[in-house]
Design a protein around this nucleic acid. Structure first.
Lengths: 251, 251
DNA sequence: ACCGTCAATATGGCATACCATACCAGTCCC
DNA sequence: GGGACTGGTATGGTATGCCATATTGACGGT
C-alpha cells in the first residue's frame, strides 16, 4: 500500500479511466500479444489497484473492441484476424473519404499551410529513412484531416477504428517496401487539398488507404506462418507508468 | 420495472450483459428522459441486482454513447443535441451508402426478392397509415442492406449509430408529414437495387437519409421549446466527460 | 493402455462494506 | 442582512470476501 498515495495524487479523472487508458495504450502499442489472457487478480496486483476498477476498465475496453470478454472465462486481448482488419480498414477508408470532403470545404488557408508543413516534415522523414517519425507524422496528418471535418461523431468513430488498427498499422509500416508509392499518394492528396477539390481528395484518400491495406494483407499472409515468436508477459514497469501520466492526454 | 426477473433466471450470459441490454432497450425506446440521472443504489434496488454489475453495465453504455458518466457525480442518460444528431446522421448516411455499394455487388436474386417483399409490405403500411409498422419495416430494410454488405465492422458501427439515433428517429417518424417523399425515395432505392446499380443506390440512399434528417432537424427546432415534460436538469453538465478519445499518435 | 469421470484448484462473477467527494443547509461573522 | 465557511448527508468510488463455474490432473474402470 505504499505507492497508493502516488496514485491518489491525481484523483480527478477516476481510477477506472486511468486503468483503461493504461491498458488501451499498451494494447494499442502492441505490448500485449493478441489472445493473451488478462487475469484479473494478477493484473490488479501488478497495477496496484483492486479488481473492481480493473473489471470496469476491461468492460470499457471490450466495448471499444480492444479486448474480448468470454463469459466465465475472463478477458483476452482482442485478436483481430486479417479479414477483420480489411473490413475495418474499408470502413476507415470510407470515413476518411467523407472526412476529406468535409475538411476540404472547411479548411482555412492556415489549415492548409499546416498540412503542407506536416507533409514536408513527413517527406523529410521519408528521405531520411526515418520510419518512426514518418509513421507518426503520417498518423498525425490523417487524424488532422478527420479532425478538420468538424464532425464529432466521425472523429469518434475514426478514433475507434484507429485504435483497433494501430498495432498492425505500425507493424505494417515497419515492413512494407512500398513506402515510395504511399508517399506519392500523399502528394496527390495534398494537391487535391490545395486545389480544394473535395471529391478528388476523398477519392485519393480512399484509394490510398485501400492500397495500404491491400499491401498489408499481402505482407501479413506472407509472415503469418512464422508468427508468435515471444510469449512475452510484458507486465513489468507498470507500477510507475499508471499513476504518473494520464492527467491530460489530448494532443 | 418488473421484467428483469424474467431475465435474471438465466445466469448464462452474465448479469452485466443483461442489465446493459435492459437499460439500453429502455434508453433507446425513450422510456428514460435524456438528462435523467441514473442513481446507482435506487436503480440497483429496482433491478434487484447489486451495484457492481450495474456500474459495469453503465460503463459499457457510456462507451456506447448512450449514457454519460460525470466524474464523482454519477451517470445520466445521454442528451444528444440536434447538432450531434445531424452529425451522427451524416455518418450514418455515409456508412449506409458504402453498405449499399457492397450490398449491390453481393446480393443474390433471392435477397433482392426479399427486399422487394419488405418494400411492398412497407408500402402497405404506408397506405394504411400504419406508422408503427411502417417504421419497423423501414428500419428492417435499412438494417438488411447493411447486413448484406457482409462487413462486420460496418454492421457494428451502423448499429452503434442506430442505437443513439433510434429514439429521435422514432419520434421523427411519428411527427413528420413528409412520409410521401420518403416513400418515393425508397422506390428509387429499390429500383437502383434491382438494376444492381451500386453507385446510384448508394447516392439515393445517402440522399434519402440526408433529407430525412434535415426534416427531423426542422421538426425538432419547431417543437423544442415545448418539449420538456420533465424539468430536465443536468443539461449543464455536458462539458466534462471522463472519456478519453483522441488517441492515435504519439509514441 | 486408453478413455471417462470426479475432484481439486484457480479464476471470474456478484454482493457488500467502507471510504472519499460533492452538494446543501445552517450558522456565524462581517 | 448577506456572504462565506463548516458540518452533515447523500451518492459515487474502491476494496474485499464469498460463491459459481470452468479447467485440469489423477485415478479407476474397461
Amino acid at each position: 500500500m505504499t505507492s497508493l498515495d502516488d496514485i491518489v495524487q491525481t484523483p480527478r479523472p477516476g481510477l477506472v479511466a486511468k486503468v483503461a487508458s493504461y491498458l488501451r495504450e499498451h494494447i494499442v502499442m502492441d505490448h500485449f500479444q493478441p489472445g493473451q489472457r488478462l487475469p484479473e487478480r494478477t493484473l490488479a496486483e501488478e497495477l496496484q489497484v483492486s479488481r473492481t476498477p480493473l473489471r470496469e476498465a476491461l468492460k470499457i475496453l471490450a466495448a471499444e473492441g480492444l479486448v474480448e470478454i468470454l463469459p466465465n472465462r475472463g478477458a483476452v486481448v482482442a485478436d483481430v484476424s486479417p479479414s477483420d482488419m480489411q473490413e475495418k480498414a474499408y470502413v476507415l477508408s470510407v470515413l476518411e473519404q467523407a472526412a476529406a470532403e468535409l475538411a476540404c470545404a472547411r479548411a482555412t488557408d492556415r489549415d492548409i499551410a499546416e498540412f503542407q508543413a506536416l507533409h514536408y516534415e513527413m517527406k523529410a522523414a521519408f528521405i531520411r529513412g526515418d520510419r518512426q517519425n514518418y509513421f507518426r507524422i503520417n498518423q498525425e496528418i490523417h487524424n488532422r484531416i478527420v479532425a478538420l471535418s468538424g464532425n464529432a461523431s466521425l472523429i469518434e468513430m475514426h478514433g475507434y477504428l484507429c485504435r483497433q488498427l494501430y498495432r498492425v498499422r505500425y507493424l505494417s509500416n515497419e515492413k512494407s517496401e512500398k513506402w515510395t508509392t504511399a508517399m506519392a499518394e500523399h502528394e496527390a492528396i495534398m494537391a487535391a487539398l490545395e486545389a480544394r477539390d473535395a471529391t478528388r481528395m476523398g477519392e485519393e484518400l480512399r484509394n490510398h488507404l485501400g492500397k495500404t491495406w491491400f499491401k498489408y494483407a499481402a505482407d501479413h499472409r506472407a509472415t503469418e506462418t512464422e508468427a508468435s515468436p515471444r510469449p512475452a508477459r510484458a507486465t513489468e514497469a507498470t507500477n510507475t507508468t499508471l499513476r504518473s501520466d494520464s492527467s491530460g492526454d489530448e494532443a
